[in-house]
Design a protein around this nucleic acid. Structure first.
Lengths: 150, 150
DNA sequence: GGTGAAACGTAGGCCGT
DNA sequence: ACGGCCTACGTTTCACC
């Protein structure tokens, strides 16, 4: 079992903020020797608490100039139509997130594209062509005062 | 200027997926020597294309059992009331993201808490006590068929 | 959980293109 | 301006206490 104690918690906090910190520096920060620290990190990775590591890229500098959240409602609510929709959405690179939500619509998507023109393209060519989709509402992101995941 | 060429692009793609890959392995993957690769990564970090690195943690295994998106509308639309709202929201640990969006409401928040009880607490004790807030709508996340940021 | 040592990776000077 | 080579130094990793 992987019960997270106080030190694990500190390790996770540090790694969540500085994913590429050296094990040595991490060990020092949490007050452990390098080997003990490494063993804990390895255990956290193996047990799935730590899923992986990623570089956080600047959206603007990597050509993302337009971000929007889109709610999507399906006309048919069968399992098959949901799976068909999710299959297409999962393949679409513009869709960074797809959440199944409660409320009057089924899905909330996060879309990241270069510009408004690219979004229009996505809207008509991808969303517009899906037979299951009956309602689309776009919320353009004008800014993100807080974004811990970015 | 930092113009991203084909190799930079490959580097970024690899680091976005495997943030803790060694420079040596990264160099091999993109077909560069270790020093050339390291220099490119350093340049990408310095120029801000790479903002940082983070460990991706499993929500369930770190005690996040309830995720919701919440739209918030402000009664007053002055700059001051927006800033006051953002100040409180930025400090709240439950709020992982706060986006300023177009549409009939001003904000879209992502909330992560342990359970429904904690969410109720946040809803009434934080959101409910902000004088600027005039409309709150919660969309509980039941699943995320795709989440590239997680 | 800590120690130590071998294996491995990083970082930077230097030179060629 | 950019890539490859070499090397001193730091870090990781693992058997052992």
């Amino acid at each position: 079992m992987s019960n997270i104690d106080y030190i694990d918690d500190r390790i996770l906090r540090v790694l969540a903020a500085e994913g590429r910190i050296s094990n040595l520096a991490l060990a020092e920060r949490v007050g452990l020797s390098a080997s003990a620290c490494l063993r804990r990190v390895a255990a956290l990775e193996k047990s799935g608490v730590i899923r992986g590591y990623r570089a956080v890229l600047s959206p603007e500098k990597t050509g993302i100039g337009f971000v929007a959240y889109v709610t999507v409602g399906l006309g048919v609510h069968t399992k098959e139509s949901q799976l068909a929709f999710e299959r297409v959405i999962t393949r679409a690179p513009e869709v960074k997130e797809c959440h199944n939500i409660t409320g009057n619509v089924e899905y909330l998507l996060r879309i990241e594209v270069t510009d408004l023109a690219a979004y229009k393209e996505f809207h008509t060519e991808v969303l517009g062509t899906l037979p299951q989709v009956s309602a689309i509402t776009s919320y353009v992101v004008m800014g993100s005062p807080k974004d811990d995941r970015a």
